[in-house]
Design a protein around this nucleic acid. Structure first.
Lengths: 337, 337
DNA sequence: ATGAAAGCGCTAACAC
DNA sequence: GTGTTAGCGCTTTCAT
């Protein structure tokens, strides 16, 4: 490779063309102080004329507290509530001048660890994580690198740094109380977990706890080895109804599954909520396609992403940040319970 | 800042601990040749013991053809077909050892340009773009940086580099032929564009062209200033039916809008497809919630992301790559047309 | 307000 | 199989 990889391409070329030193050009570009208005104009004109693209690799290398890279890890990008959250994170971070490096860990702490290693090699300014738990190696890496961490999605577990989320247990508990209060007595849950247990299991625990408080117990539980979605909801409902007789209410892992269950019930001629009640979770956009209003719990996904991003940047900038922020979830009674 | 930013943290520390030179340690870590088995073991033991995290910033800086950063720009992360595509891209790239830096441009060439500037400063190994058009500055930047580019989503426009996608015009044309062949005569289109025109308008053009070939013309067209989704579909249908009498078929921008339209028609007591036919586009997962099988065009989103990623990496590695790859779209007749 | 020199952590090139 | 040297493009530090 030649000595100068991109001849006439760097800051030196701009500086020379503008008749100043690299240092002065650098100051202008970083909007630091220490240059006259005419110097600035001259430099910026050359930047434009030469099509200079700053090299953040070199800049970050020189002083690694200027990184504007943020690693964001989510279970997956599509199919759940993480899409809107990620969208919100990306918008907020990009507005604040940061770049997002995503990774999807598919509920595997090992995948998350591998991703984190790759990301840390880029010396990010901070990371946003969203798995329920982390490997020991992951925690050690984060501690060692002293990197700001925001954990999103749940606040039930002990946070590594800042936590922005809500209690999945409480979501389940609240729905359990609600369903029990409506007089249902033979109540089941239907979910789907492709890999390790996610937060849905915590919601189910909260749900069951509420039933117990109401003197009831869970009449059935069907957790498929699959990703949550319409079809697992459909078939999970079929299974649980064939195994347990007279089930009069089902709480689903999320709205997509609840919709699948709703269609199964209707296809069997069951009246909802007359014969059987259906409750979902998440307030997913897909529920809007129903003529029924699905009873569910709305999650403020956009606020979650925004608050998490802003908290991380504040921490990076050394501003005071609340350790834990709870974002809103709200049980929305529809006409399916 | 102190001289050594992270004392005992770099390659030098590992090398010293292992009793070799930095160079040898570097060779071991990059799995290059030129070290004995026992040297390797000794180095790796120290890497592990010291919790060494390689610094890709420095490595990429030294020789910027080793970058493993890929910039990926999409209109948005959620709400359309780009979620699955992005998911597929991220999986494929991460499997190949690359990191994804996303950006969403919201159909604005200016936003895309700003994102590109920020991303190019990181000297990515390549970029994947997905807007319909680009600003002149964007094209100039890409040319100047000589960076491998893959454009996804459409192949109707002249590509900057490699193109992986399909013809939206043909999608529309095919559906136009299909609807006309079923005997419908008063046919409208309903869409939604929040910002600049996206590819949906091209599908509508193809659709209209097919109608003309069948001796028909478009009876109505309603393009809302909104993002496509259930509600715009619902209200767009209401509007077009109130403006134009006896419409007997509607082609929608996507499945989400078609579902909204379907619910509007059913709420008004219209028989589908007896009184009015409904055709969507995209083969979106949300259509699975319907008892009807929506007539639509399936898009191979996963293949699209995979092929695009692999083509980009092949180009980066200097392997031969086809300039244009067409991924499958397939008209799937349901029972709504 | 401006510039000169040093050096961030790593790896290409070359020597041994 | 291993080590030495030089330098990537910036920014920090210190001088003027």
């Amino acid at each position: 490779m030649s000595k100068a990889k991109h001849p006439g391409t760097g800051l030196a070329a701009v500086a020379e063309a503008a008749g100043v030193s690299k240092m002065t050009a650098s100051r202008v570009l970083r909007n630091a102080s220490g240059f006259s208005t005419e110097t600035r104009d001259r430099v910026l004109r050359e930047v434009d004329r030469l099509g200079y693209v700053p090299n953040r690799i070199a800049a970050t290398f020189r002083s690694d507290d200027t990184s504007t890279l943020i690693g964001v890890s989510v279970p997956r990008l599509t199919g759940g509530l993480f899409g809107p959250v990620l969208d919100s994170i990306d918008h907020t971070l990009s507005r604040l001048g940061y770049q997002t490096m995503i990774g999807s860990h598919e509920q595997s702490v090992k995948t998350e660890e591998a991703w984190l290693r790759a990301i840390l090699a880029w010396r990010p300014a901070g990371v946003i994580l969203s798995s329920r738990s982390h490997s020991e190696a992951t925690k050690k890496l984060l501690r060692k690198q002293k990197i700001p961490v925001v954990e999103i999605w749940n606040i039930d577990t002990l946070p590594l740094g800042i936590a922005v989320g809500f209690s999945h247990f409480d979501c389940g508990y609240e729905m359990g109380q609600f369903v029990a209060s409506k007089g249902y007595r033979k109540i089941a849950v239907v979910g789907a977990e492709a890999q390790a247990a996610g937060m849905a299991m915590v919601r189910f625990q909260g749900f069951e706890e509420a039933l117990k408080s109401a003197g009831l117990s869970l009449a059935g539980s069907e957790i498929l080895t699959d990703r949550p979605g319409f079809y697992p909801g459909y078939y999970g409902t079929e299974t649980v109804l064939s195994r347990v007789s007279d089930v009069d209410a089902i709480y689903y892992q999320d709205d997509a599954m609840a919709i699948g269950g709703l269609f199964y019930c209707k296809s069997k001629g069951l009246d909802v909520p007359g014969d059987i009640a259906i409750a979902g979770w998440g307030g997913m956009e897909v529920a809007a396609v129903l003529p029924e209003r699905l009873t569910t719990t709305n999650v403020a996904t956009e606020a979650l992403g925004k608050v998490a991003s802003e908290a991380l940047i504040a921490r990076i900038r050394g501003e005071p940040v609340r350790e834990t922020t709870v974002v809103e979830t709200r049980l929305v009674p529809g006409n399916t319970v």
